[in-house]
């Protein structure tokens, strides 16, 4: 098992800048062998955690995107009915019925969906169950067996235990409250927006061509914008887009070019009200402060 320090170093090596708490909780996942539930506002990088974890352990990432109406046929397994029917027709009149039944309800006729694939993978995988709050409550209940015992039950085949222990990450946006039973089986982490220092480091890691000055300024402006009264606060991905577009416009110093900064706001603010609220004057005021500080 990796120590926290190695984990932190490896996370950074794969380009994910995590704070100490997050490293701690990822270590805890391994130590207690429990799934992890991550909550936080949209755009704080919940899904990225799973991707980084997969890279850190150098194992495949299996992703299950939840949506309303997701059922176990789409998430866990399904019998390949067409193939079964064909097999039955082909063998009509030949051999005993029991043998045929055992044949069509065997592994080759099983379609593996993400959850079963994660359990049956010979090497450990990272399983990301994304936006669990979008799925129905019944689906949550059905996940419980998987999350607490790492096993699934298929009536025709019996209980399948995990071949390798998957690392399971669940994310939630809070569109619906998740049941206590599910929460109890998971570790919990609330992901906040990165602070200015961390966001600067994220920018420098993800956009190697950015100058240190611009990275600091972008992080500072975004942090200031998140404090404004916005309908949707810009996430880390938006910050990266904005910085990339500024680089594209060859902006070196935000303090000197509020017009360019404002022109690229489409990458940062994604509702009409927010665009209207952050006018050129607001941007000029924010970038003006940069000059005063720097």
């Amino acid at each position: 098992m990796l120590t926290r320090e190695t984990m932190a170093a490896r996370l950074e090596a794969v380009g994910y800048i995590a704070d100490a708490d997050l490293v701690g909780v990822l270590w805890l996942m391994d130590y207690l062998q429990r799934p992890l539930l991550i909550e936080g506002e949209a755009g704080v990088g919940k899904t990225e955690v799973a991707k980084a974890l997969a890279q850190l352990h150098q194992c495949p990432l299996i992703r299950l995107q939840c949506y309303e109406g997701l059922d176990q046929n789409a998430a866990l397994y399904e019998w390949n009915y067409q193939k079964q029917l064909l097999a039955i027709r082909l063998r009509e009149g030949k051999g005993a019925a029991e043998a045929l039944e055992a044949h069509v309800f065997s592994a080759p006729y099983l379609l593996e969906r993400p959850l079963l694939r994660a359990i049956r993978s010979p090497e450990p995988v990272v399983l990301l169950i994304d936006e669990i709050d979008r799925a129905d409550e019944e689906f949550e209940a059905f996940l419980l067996e998987l999350l607490s015992d790492f096993q699934v039950t298929i009536p025709e085949l019996g209980t399948l235990n995990a071949v390798s222990m998957p690392r399971i990450i669940l994310t939630s946006n809070g569109t619906r409250d998740i049941s206590d039973a599910l929460r109890r089986r998971c570790l919990y982490h609330y992901l906040e927006f990165p602070d200015m220092g961390r966001e600067t480091r994220i920018l420098m890691t993800r956009l190697p061509q950015i100058s240190a000055q611009l990275a600091v300024q972008v992080a500072e402006i975004v942090a200031a914008l998140r404090k404004e009264d916005l309908a949707k606060r810009p996430g880390v991905a938006e910050t990266l887009d904005w910085a990339a577009s500024l680089i594209g416009l060859k902006v070196e110093d935000l303090g000197a070019s509020p017009q360019e900064a404002h022109a690229c706001l489409a990458a940062l603010l994604k509702t009409r009200d927010d665009r209207a609220a952050i006018s050129l004057e607001v941007i000029a005021r924010l970038t003006g402060k940069l000059e005063a500080v720097g």
């Binding site: 701690g24 570790l187 919990y188």
Partner: peptide, 9 residues
């Protein structure tokens, strides 16, 4: 840091 993710829901 270790007890927090364990105890919070």
């Amino acid at each position: 840091g270790a007890l927090k993710p364990l105890c919070c829901a």
